[in-house]
Nucleic acid binder design. Sequence first.
DNA 1: TATGTCGTCCCGTCAGACGGGACGAACGCC
DNA 2: GGCGTTCGTCCCGTCTGACGGGACGACATA
Lengths: 253, 253
Amino acid sequence: MAPMIPRRDEDTLSARIAALLGAFRAGDDAVGAAELARRTGLPKSTVHRITSDLVRTGLLERHGRKVRLGLALFEIGQRVPRQRVLREAAVPFMSDLREATRQTVHLAVLDGREVVYVEKLTTPGGPPLPSSVGGRVPAAATGVGKAILAFSPSATVERMLRGDLPRLTERTITAPGLLARELRRVRRDGVAYDREESGPGITCVASPVLGPDGNAIAALSLSGWSSRMHPARYSPAVRTAALALSRALHTGG
Amino acid sequence: MAPMIPRRDEDTLSARIAALLGAFRAGDDAVGAAELARRTGLPKSTVHRITSDLVRTGLLERHGRKVRLGLALFEIGQRVPRQRVLREAAVPFMSDLREATRQTVHLAVLDGREVVYVEKLTTPGGPPLPSSVGGRVPAAATGVGKAILAFSPSATVERMLRGDLPRLTERTITAPGLLARELRRVRRDGVAYDREESGPGITCVASPVLGPDGNAIAALSLSGWSSRMHPARYSPAVRTAALALSRALHTGG
DNA sequence: TATGTCGTCCCGTCAGACGGGACGAACGCC
DNA sequence: GGCGTTCGTCCCGTCTGACGGGACGACATA
């Protein structure tokens, strides 16, 4: 009899382990085997066996009867080149930018159709932002995302324009044509704005960190309440910091 | 014929994946398959197959012909509870401490016989320290390690005293008896010192972050040049910050 | 007490991991 | 430019370890 369960096109053990690790959400502490089975779609006994193996190797930790992400994963995560090199170089510039503007500073990279925040420096008076280091947001809805896209190979942009542009607020750009035009403007000015497109009441000013080939590696941004964040006033500071960081990355210092 | 190769007591795929991920060192960018095979002791074709699977799932990324840790691992690492909860609560206190003392501030947790740095706030004038977020150092050789051990269950301390105490400088404590006595003093005072025991010319003052049961969860420390870091002068500040953080963690705010 | 859900464990089946070996390309050295 | 080495990649026959349904007791809830 032919197997009734259509074999997932990719269900090697590696894929299952990745699925299992990815099943832990940002706010989770410890999670039970049954819950993980539900989230991943894997049989319960399979989850139990794999998590036991992962606990033995240290990637997961037992917490009571449940299981949680292990400290080893934090250590490994800190070694990821895409963020490590960038962050080391960026923090001083971000610190200066925060000092000069008294606004919240973000550093993000593009990954697929989303941006991932690599560093965030908050400021006492600033608004409470939902962003967090390691967090993911649709690129087209953010200042950093638009800054990076405007200085990316056209193939990357076209791939983005072909898919859905998720709506985060009523001002989020969801029309491909509008986004394309916006990106041309960003490319001309070197600065991208986010006028309440990612969160209500929040305005951002972003500028790309460029590699030697002129393509963006990352982007810096300032975020604040719309009432106090006047783009024109802060864009020179952001642009300057981003250019300085770009230069520092090239010269290896 | 009996298999000549003694079966590793644990060589499930999970263990191999963990070994492979752990084979990437802090300074590495991309690493080749042959090099990974050498580091892990795995056959080259096995490394090639597993890394290909891991690339497909996103845990690793192709970089030319080589392979490097993927951004997904950074994201997952940021969700690890042992560091996330702690860091979120600690950063404001650490920031204040740096402001008040103008010294480098560390936050670390104990893992096995070592401490892992969870956060680090540097200061412009401070000495260049080899420590890094996600880095690992023998616990007995550091201020944070001694602060945590002094407020740990006796089983934890005894396990530490039974093994080797690695020497980092000529002042590192390597005699179990001396360490035990030092820990009693730390427990009495609530503050641990590191007088050039982890690095030449560097002095630290550390204090434990305590859980509701009185055991240490983590520790805060100040580090600076020995010539300018007078322990007695800074210990009240460190102790105060650590106590404040302990209280903030309990009350959930 | 009844009921659902949890974590854990067993064990017969078989699919997929395994790794030695081959191959061509790239590199470094003379 | 020639040569030796080391690299990444791929194939394929063998067989072992992953697989997951199902059973079980502990626990929480109603």
